[in-house]
Design a protein around this nucleic acid. Sequence first.
DNA 1: GTGAAAGCGCTAACAT
DNA 2: ATGTTAGCGCTTTCAC
Lengths: 346, 346
Amino acid sequence: MGKMARPTIYEVAREAGVSRQTVSRVINNRPDVAPETRERILRIISELDYRPSAIARSLSKQRSYNFGLLTAGLKYIGPSTTLSGIAKKAEELGYGIYFKELPTWNSNNIQPILDWFLARQVEGIIWAVPEVGDNHDWLRSVADSIPVPIIFLTTAKRANISIVSVDNYAGARMATEHLLSVGRRKIGHISGPMDWWESRERRQGWQDALREAGIESDPHMVAEGNWSSKSGKRAFAQLMETFPEMDAVFVANDQMALSVLQTAFESNIDVPDQLSVVGFDNIPESEFFSPPLTTVYQNLVELGCTAVEELVWMIETDKAKGDRQSVKYSKIQPELIIRKSTSPKT
Amino acid sequence: MGKMARPTIYEVAREAGVSRQTVSRVINNRPDVAPETRERILRIISELDYRPSAIARSLSKQRSYNFGLLTAGLKYIGPSTTLSGIAKKAEELGYGIYFKELPTWNSNNIQPILDWFLARQVEGIIWAVPEVGDNHDWLRSVADSIPVPIIFLTTAKRANISIVSVDNYAGARMATEHLLSVGRRKIGHISGPMDWWESRERRQGWQDALREAGIESDPHMVAEGNWSSKSGKRAFAQLMETFPEMDAVFVANDQMALSVLQTAFESNIDVPDQLSVVGFDNIPESEFFSPPLTTVYQNLVELGCTAVEELVWMIETDKAKGDRQSVKYSKIQPELIIRKSTSPKT
DNA sequence: GTGAAAGCGCTAACAT
DNA sequence: ATGTTAGCGCTTTCAC
């Protein structure tokens, strides 16, 4: 097809023999246009294949109806599931998304990204990068110079910062309490990397659940992995050395739990009788592990949806009240899925 | 922080005692500005925390440096890995991404999405939705009325349409030929849903590889799954009924292959000796299945990168040559990863 | 109900 | 080396 310059509101007006404002009224569904005029203009619009320029409109209205989204680790299923929720809710609420991915979790070169979004006049920002190491430290110095609302996902609570996270602590407690409830007492833990906030939360949940049951946890009951199946194998081997009497283990994600099941099988350790196992995430395959894995499900689509809802709420609120910076904080509750990898102690 | 109106080029100019044009020259790094003037303006820019409006610039330059990206099925690891490649390359090439997700594979309500992107003056579109059923049929009627370059991912070849896909056919042949090369002759196939183009390509690759080895394939040697582990279990059960002499199976993805390994184990079928298994995708867990899974790796990050490269090439070419619609077609070659689930026939 | 004028923040083209 | 003018495509305000 030929690509002559796309028609503007002016072409439509000329063709219809009216002024541009009249066309503007039609495309904005304003009431004060004569029915026949509107009719005619609409016909011409479709004939000309005219599409109002969102850019010109943004400039003129000083409103972009876009927000910026920064993710990281899209190769993992968690971030992308979250993304799916974000996309869905943004669509519903009529916002567009400028999308960027951080090449590494731990990037401290934040300013260019912020500037990029802000130059494009986004009305808010979703920072969907999990807190790892000190990768959120820039917040302290920069946060309140950002002229639009910003919401962080999967981040430790901070004053005056809007955050949405899954309640990892509660999830870990549920997992551990379930193990306790089936009579297990020697409960080990394979954690994620300890520079991850989520890992620390999960370990704390495990530890507190034990303590409330009158069991003191101890470093030799924990081994650290890095989320990968490979690291899970290593961590489990270590745990069998340092904590041989273990009769259950709470593993911080399903991929590492898979290795535990695998290794247990190879070592003739019976799961769930000799060793009960709980994972975290509920990846689709976990139902087909052998045995099917008891695990903690985190609704990441909901996490994404909530993030957008709250961001949009902040945007609207700020627009309405003028100057105020509104803040939101919420947690998504996870859910325990009981399958065959846990059983009562006999 | 107070959110007074963000400064414009005009404020900077006034503050610096120059015209807006001079400021414009500075922010665009034009040479013809006196060093001290530039110096002063830069200082004021940073003092005022001034950020040029990309919207105003787009309007004025008639260039947005953005493209539209439509995905589907982000909950699966494939699409999101592709996305990661797209984000990376777009960043490199200086383009922004407007992001949308289709709620279902099979959506025929395409026009609003196209319109949405085009209204925002995107300079190109990436249609990263796999071809399922007739969900690409709209192409025939609409394609050449789209005023910007558009590239399709994972789509059957069509005249005059730009496409990037993984070579599923070649991948399936590699898998099957590997099975043949280790002496297997009774090679079954668990396919994906047959309304998926990728499924058909993979089945065809299997079939042709067999035929070239002098083996005629037959419907009772195939069972259809829907990519999920659950469906894989069902399909495998069916295959054991209809094709009991089977000594190998090529499974169209790893998740279904997991079920095959699982079921084989429960049924005391030895993998790889009695039954060799090849999957497709190389999901991270596949290395930890029992036994570790031989599979076909598709480099989806590369798929995404290539898509962006070619789109940008089309954009630049069209801009340069004026009217012409340039077209690109390419395939990403997959790679066979040999692990323990396949072995020579004894 | 419709139109004229001004302006959103920036750049291109032409002065000086 | 710097300024002036006009214009990108639309909306807002105020007339008529």
